[in-house]
């Protein structure tokens, strides 16, 4: 984007060429390959505004948001409010659109704060949304940590940028190497449900590994190594990464099975909490026995 850094910035007001909407740019929320997103205000309510000089891509994103709206009773992606052009004082033409501002935290931050048990639960909801999206003929494409937000009450994983959303069967429009199966030599860049599921599995691996990992000399081995740290989710992620799931429902069913199995006798809750809750009701001797038991459990857990 030429000159955009200087022309489009926090503090200015944009007025639309066609619909004459007036939007203040309050704060920059992020920027990517296509454009920048700002926090703005519309009828006194916060909204997100995406602006770019890449007209074709922007117009297609609007098309995607409009068609997602048509998926009945279900909010897939942010709600679209307005779309317009902006002519800067220097005469440069920009295209922008205004959409719902989805407030929330990043998925990795959320998991760190709330505990790892939230990851599979949130993935479950996302798999449902992906299924709806796929059924209406779209593939999300650029699924990644940066494009996901955990919104509260109820806790739900929502996607915030539809820039990569592609019609089923076509070439993926926008992707990020780490999440792209073509980059890892593990499949094509054709828009099909398994493309999104690969990216979803890489997102989970990124969180479980505490960050991204390099492709290395043999990409498949690097992924295998990362899968070692995936714990219970390992078989599920492995299937998604090798394209064994042809739709989100298959992966969702496996995940549900896995989560229900978790109720088996092996204690996985942190030992410290267990001793604390027991100390109140029981005598000192019993609590010492319990503590020793908990420590043994913890050691076994660490050794695994």
């Amino acid at each position: 984007m030429k000159n955009s850094a200087a022309e489009i910035r926090t503090g200015i007001r944009l007025s639309g060429k066609w619909h004459h909407g007036d939007y203040p740019l309050i704060r920059k929320l992020g920027s990517g390959a296509i454009g920048s997103v700002y926090l703005t205000e519309r009828n006194g309510i916060h909204a997100a505004l995406k602006i770019s000089d890449k007209r074709t891509s922007m117009t297609m994103e609007v098309k995607v948001l409009q068609s997602l709206k048509k998926v009945q009773g279900y909010f897939l992606g942010p709600c679209l409010f307005d779309t317009d052009d902006y002519v800067s004082p220097s005469g440069q033409l920009y295209t922008f659109y205004v959409m719902e501002y989805i407030q929330g935290s990043r998925l990795d931050t959320y998991i760190k704060a709330k505990g790892p048990e939230w990851l599979p639960v949130l993935l479950l909801g996302l798999l449902d949304d992906l299924d709806h999206l796929h059924r209406s003929g779209w593939i999300f494409g650029d699924l990644k940590l940066d494009n996901l937000v955990v919104s509260e009450k109820p806790a739900r994983l929502r996607w915030v940028d539809v820039g990569g959303t592609t019609q089923l069967g076509r070439a993926i429009k926008e992707y990020t190497e780490f999440y792209d199966r073509g980059h890892w030599g593990m499949g094509s860049r054709k828009a099909e449900p398994s493309y999104d599921l690969f990216a979803l599995a890489m997102t989970a691996l990124e969180i479980l590994n505490g960050g991204r990992f390099a492709k290395g000399e043999t990409p498949k081995n690097s992924i295998k190594k990362a899968l070692h740290g995936a714990g219970k989710l390992r078989p599920l992620l492995e299937k998604a990464l090798t394209g064994k799931y042809t739709d989100s429902i298959g992966m969702k069913q496996d995940l549900v099975k896995l989560l229900m199995k978790k109720k088996s006798p092996t204690p996985v809750s942190p030992p410290s909490r267990m001793t604390k809750s027991n100390r109140r009701k029981t005598g000192l001797g019993e609590s010492i026995v319990l503590s020793v038991y908990a420590i043994i459990c913890y050691v076994i857990y660490l050794l695994q």
Binding site: W18, R55, T56, T59, M60, V62, K63, T83, D84, D85, L93, T95, R170, A171
Partner: peptide, 21 residues
């Protein structure tokens, strides 16, 4: 294309995208 309002432009650009695909 610049002289068309955004909603009309969308239909034209959809054709552009179809052709490039």
């Amino acid at each position: 294309l610049d002289d068309l309002p955004p909603d009309k432009r969308g239909d034209v650009l959809e054709v552009v995208e179809d052709i490039s695909e």
